[in-house]
Design a protein around this nucleic acid. Structure first.
Lengths: 146, 146
DNA sequence: TGTGTTTATATCGTTCACGATGCAAATTTA
DNA sequence: TAAATTTGCATCGTGAACGATATAAACACA
């Protein structure tokens, strides 16, 4: 068996698995309010700055518009956001939070901490997390390539 | 703006993004042989040990059988694996590599290194990667909870 | 002004993920 | 051994991801 093909040597498999498992950890907390994890990410973006065009949201999340557009339509159908043509640029669709979308923020106040608590362990502590962030940011920066 | 909701403070978002970007880095290398990234993971598992039941493959990848079953069927349709009823336990489906499936290994020999090279940077080096592995393994171990 | 190009978003098709559920073989237990 | 339970795999439905492509508005420039 070639050592380089060992599953346990693959950084990618660890990232892929950790990402999936953390998303699963969010699931019960979010589904209570009819949200998925990517929809929660959109909310994070809009809570930071309301009324953004689709493209800005997609860029912030490093996703393509063909992923974000259907996602936003589902959120519109749920009454969480509105989508309206841009005033100065008619190509843009401006996404705004509804009252319901803004209101979700206080209902989800405990979510970040709850998930964070579920992750902390021997080698992942408030002291080591910045280092982990740094490495992941390096990888992301290298791969997004722009 | 509540600090705990800042996108940049979310570990999950970094893992999710890093995972997606690395998968994208694999894409051109794998699609040349008609493979997807999850299918490549299945190959890694079978190259380590051929002739495993669906359940063992799913457990190794921490996926559910309802994800792995259709994936294996597509790989069977591509002539990469065979699926046959288990001898001693008729509920099991034993997955075996075909000659083509085994042959893919030498064609993909350079893949792990190519992807690894694309990731190495300031804070991600042969010296720091073991620490990164350890933290991710801790997170995975904590979340898979068994 | 007209024509070509870029930009913003959307549509389509395929492949994951995964919760919920179904089914048949194996196992346990009464 | 019959009945209940567990196990292994599959089906179904929904929601991402994303490559390829389409469409219309904005822009550049001849």
């Amino acid at each position: 068996m070639d050592e380089r093909f060992r599953l346990d040597n693959q950084l990618c498999f660890r990232l892929y698995t950790a990402s999936r498992l953390i998303t699963q950890a969010y699931h019960p907390l979010l589904s209570e309010y009819g949200l998925t994890y990517p929809q929660y990410l959109v909310l994070l973006v809009l809570w930071e700055k309301d009324g953004q065009p689709v493209n800005d949201i997609a860029k912030r999340l490093l996703l393509e518009t063909n992923t974000v557009t259907p996602l936003l339509k589902r959120m519109e159908a749920e009454g969480i956001v509105t989508r309206s043509k841009g005033r100065e640029d008619a190509r843009q669709i401006i996404v705004k939070l509804t009252r319901k979308g803004r209101g979700l923020q206080e209902k989800l106040l405990n979510v970040p901490e709850t998930v964070a608590r579920g992750i902390l362990c021997d080698r992942v502590t408030p002291e080591t997390i910045p280092g982990l962030y740094g490495m992941l940011d390096d990888i992301i920066g290298k791969l997004k390539g722009d």
